[in-house]
Computed example of a mutant assay.
Amino acid sequence: MRQIILDTETTGIDPEAGHNIIEIGCVEMVRRKLTGNTWHHYLKPDRTVETEAIEVHGITNEFLEDKPKFASLGADFLNFVRGAELIIHNAAFDIGFLNTELARNGFSERMEDICTITDTLAMARKKHPGQRNSLDALCRRYGIDNSHRELHGALLDSEILADVYLFLTGGQTALQLGQSSGQGDDSDDEPIRRVVTHSPLAVVRASADELRQHDAFIQLLDKKSDGAVWRQLDLGE
């Protein structure tokens, strides 16, 4: 089945209070691999973005001033996701907003009418009960690099969620260290990417005084061992 990993950003937390979607990000996945096909738009809301929301996603009212309204892009969005399985983290939040926007803008369809919906938060809670299961926490648990996620963003979060979903549903079954997994290039269990970044190791070079002390110690070992093996090797003995 064609899968769409989806995320939204909003003006606030309650669509029934008149809050709007201001960003939708979707990435397409087929046979557990990203296709490169995406749907991503910023949307001008009918109200101002709350300060608390801006602190989460960094999307300001000034930035949204010249963006299109949901009404002008709703049909195109529905065509993109129609018939797909939607993969969403905390799906109730995003689906609630999407259905409210659709109804508010004269669309008769609801997301459940045209898509199946999978909630990765529910999956994670079942797989890791009693643990934190936010997107950041799951990235840490599975070793997925999200160091570039300083603020929430719908498209970036969808790309990260694609990796999280793959690990939640099976993950990597072979080390992929230049050896065949026996399943070919279309293996259904190969994740898109699993990037773990490490800080580069610092190179600390010995000082001149430390080198003198080392040489003195080597000479002492040489004297006490009546001719150290490494000295014999250096002399070709």
Rank of each mutant, 00 (worst) to 15 (best):
I4E: 13
L6A: 04
L6E: 14
L6G: 03
D7M: 03
E9W: 00
T11E: 07
D14M: 11
I21D: 06
I22S: 00
I22D: 07
I22N: 02
E23D: 10
V27I: 13
E28P: 00
V30A: 13
R32M: 07
L34Q: 01
G36W: 07
W39T: 00
H41L: 12
L43I: 15
K44R: 15
P45H: 09
D46W: 13
E50F: 08
E50P: 02
E50T: 06
T51S: 14
T51I: 08
E52W: 02
A53E: 07
T60N: 11
L64Q: 05
E65T: 10
D66Q: 12
F70Q: 05
A71I: 03
A71G: 03
A71S: 12
A71V: 05
A75M: 06
L78H: 11
F80N: 05
V81D: 11
V81Q: 13
R82Y: 12
R82L: 00
G83N: 08
L86E: 00
I87H: 11
H89E: 12
H89M: 14
A92C: 04
F93H: 15
I95W: 02
L98S: 02
L98V: 05
N99D: 15
T100L: 05
T100S: 06
L102T: 01
R104M: 04
R104E: 09
F107H: 11
F107T: 08
E109A: 13
M111A: 05
D113C: 09
I114V: 11
I114Y: 13
T118D: 09
D119C: 15
M123N: 11
R125F: 08
R125L: 15
K126C: 10
P129I: 00
Q131D: 12
Q131P: 03
R132A: 12
N133F: 01
N133Y: 02
N133K: 02
A137I: 03
L138S: 02
C139T: 07
R141I: 09
Y142L: 07
G143F: 03
G143I: 12
I144H: 07
R149V: 11
E150N: 10
L151E: 04
H152T: 15
G153K: 02
D157A: 04
S158C: 07
I160P: 08
F167L: 05
L168Y: 14
T169N: 13
Q176F: 14
L177D: 08
G184Y: 03
D185C: 10
S187N: 14
D188N: 01
D189Y: 10
E190V: 08
P191V: 07
P191Q: 05
I192C: 01
R193F: 10
R193Y: 09
V196H: 06
T197E: 11
S199T: 09
A202S: 14
V204F: 10
R205M: 15
D209P: 09
D209N: 09
E210D: 10
A216S: 02
F217P: 09
I218W: 00
L221E: 11
K224Y: 02
G227T: 05
G227Y: 00
A228R: 03
V229A: 13
W230H: 05
R231C: 01
G236R: 14
